[in-house]
Design a protein around this nucleic acid. Structure first.
Length: 206
DNA sequence: GTCCAGGGCCGTT
DNA sequence: AACGGCCATGGA
């Protein structure tokens, strides 16, 4: 299996190259505090929703100087309806406004900033995120891998299609697949980021 | 009009 | 543990 996965990665890499800056936000340089926050907030906004609609929500937040964890915390605390209105284009907007707020509240009240929270180790951060209602395995892992730069493989709909397409496993459950990838690949967050991004790029390309 | 998109929660079995 | 209903918008 190890050889098989690496071979599939190489094939994707040869076809598309290193996916930096080619694929949404996730694979930009991710240097700024703002990028990290946008990645984390986007991970929630994109639940069961296409990225176009997420960008509309981002636009609304940006226009009102609200695209930050601190601002979302402030707005949500004072006026949830205002936050709901801003994220409305992303669908499931009441849930998502609430989820964004709970996440922001957790970060600001306990750590002051996302960067400060992400100083803790992977297992700690992951567990804490999963305690927040509305953040499940995929959302938590997206935040860990792409904002936190921590080595955890993200399993999403695209990963499952990839697994099916190449007949890598019949079991498609989250943790089974995560273990399948992680136990057969070098533990390296950049590698995980690139591999997962290439899987998505490949899926969208056909 | 119909279908569906980087999920997750909460019931029921 | 597994499965179904539910949440909602905008583009194809």
């Amino acid at each position: 299996m190890k050889g098989k996965l690496e071979k599939l990665y190489k094939k994707l890499y040869e076809e598309y190259g290193r996916p930096v800056g080619q694929w949404r936000l996730w694979c930009k340089k991710n240097k700024s505090k703002k990028d990290k926050e946008k990645i984390a907030l986007g991970a929630i906004l994109t639940q069961r929703t296409n990225w176009r609609n997420v960008e509309k929500a981002f636009d609304n937040l940006e226009k009102t100087e609200s695209l930050s964890i601190k601002q979302i915390y402030k707005i949500g605390k004072k006026d949830m309806e205002k936050l709901e209105k801003l994220v409305r284009p992303s669908g499931f907007y009441k849930q998502k406004a609430s989820r964004l707020f709970k996440f922001s509240e957790f970060i600001i009240e306990n750590y002051g900033s996302l960067g400060n929270f992400l100083k803790r180790d992977l297992d700690f951060c992951r567990e804490k995120l999963l305690e927040i209602s509305g953040i499940g395995p995929e959302t938590a892992d997206s935040i860990m891998l792409y904002a936190g730069q921590k080595p955890v493989f993200v399993i999403d709909e695209y990963t499952r299609r990839f697994v099916k397409k190449h007949k890598l496993s019949k079991n498609l459950s989250y943790y089974y697949l995560q273990k399948l990838f992680e136990s057969n690949l070098k533990r390296d967050f950049r590698f995980y980021q690139d591999f997962h991004a290439l899987i998505v790029i490949d899926a969208k390309n056909k």
